[in-house]
Amino acid sequence: MAMKPSDTDQKLRKQRLIFYEDDIGRINKALENYQNLSKSRCNMLIDVEGHPVTQVGSTEGINLETIAALVAASFAATKEVAKILGETEFSSLTHQGKNESIQLSIVGDRTILTTIFDSQDTTVGMVMFYTKELVEKLNAIFNEIKSRKDSGKPIFNDDFKDMSGVLDDMFGDV
């Protein structure tokens, strides 16, 4: 008998981030423009769970997945600090190093813009200046994504039935 998803599951499904190629194209365009203006090295968009969404710029020497997980955790921890201080959240965070620095800015309520920049190329002020403009642009894109009707299409194709083979390949036939 088919199981009906619970209310919690339905709610989760509504909150779930689904990106299509067109969305990523628009986001990347906005990120590239921002990157040129701010003279930053690399820009990533990650979700608050720490999954990378997309990135532009030079990512050489950067482990994207790890940095995404750490950035998301850092943001989550800081959000709790904000709450203790009576704020809902801190909308941006900057970590400054001798050469490389990173700025995090919340976009919408589910994603974090991560800007990595070289202090010889630009300044925190310049990055922050252009971030405001970008966040507005991205918010508009995200609002469209959010308001889009769920296509109801399956994610997986017919090959899903071979999942156990994929699992066996990874974890062994146990």
């Binding site: 088919a2 199981m3 998803p5 599951d9 499904r13 109801g152 299409k153 399956p154 994610i155 997986f156 899903f160 999942m163 156990s164 699992l167 990874m170 974890f171 062994g172 146990v174």
Partner: peptide, 30 residues
């Protein structure tokens, strides 16, 4: 590995169920 394998399987099957309901149709989904 068996522990993780099982969890991976359950997570993916749940996801497939959530996004495959329309295709399963009434009574068609097992």
């Amino acid at each position: 590995f068996p522990t993780l394998k099982k969890l991976a399987q359950i997570v993916l099957e749940k996801l497939n169920r959530e996004y495959g309901l329309q295709n399963d149709g009434p009574g068609g989904g097992s």
